[in-house]
Amino acid sequence: MRKVIFFIPLVVFIALGIVFYLQLGKNPEYMPSALVGKPVPAIHLVSLDTDQVVTNVELPKGPYLINFWGTWCPTCAIEHPYLMRLAKKGVPIIGIDYKDGKASAEQWLRNKGNPYKMVLLDELGNFGVNMGVTGAPETFVVNSKGIIVYRHQGALDEAVWKSIQGYMQ
């Protein structure tokens, strides 16, 4: 019985080793969004297409994506062709032109095609702050109840889509 006590440090060491080992390879940059499980914050943004103010009422009813992008953002250019593919599949995407100008956004969409159901201008990045965005591209999945269920930081691609597809309901 007394001997067992001497093994406690070893046991603790092994337990810690296992805990730390399981953390290896995880992306330390990954930050869970504070908005997951919450409804989309109040939207009051001008639409690129109509120049009209858009509020939450006009958002799609079914599940959809909110994609933050900007013409200044190189990763967004990489992501764009994949968004076009998603749009072709019929995935509704709301584009938020984040900290960008109207003219450059229009040119970008003319040159590369427009995968967005609706493009809203967030020139000052205020809506970005309300969504807890830290940069672009960033994509949120909103379910049919209007609740944010997933957030992805960085470009969307086939692999990412596979993991978030399940949230589109």
């Binding site: 969504m131 807890g132 830290t134």
Partner: peptide, 8 residues
Amino acid sequence: MVARYGDF
């Protein structure tokens, strides 16, 4: 800030 970016 916490409501938007979490306890992080």
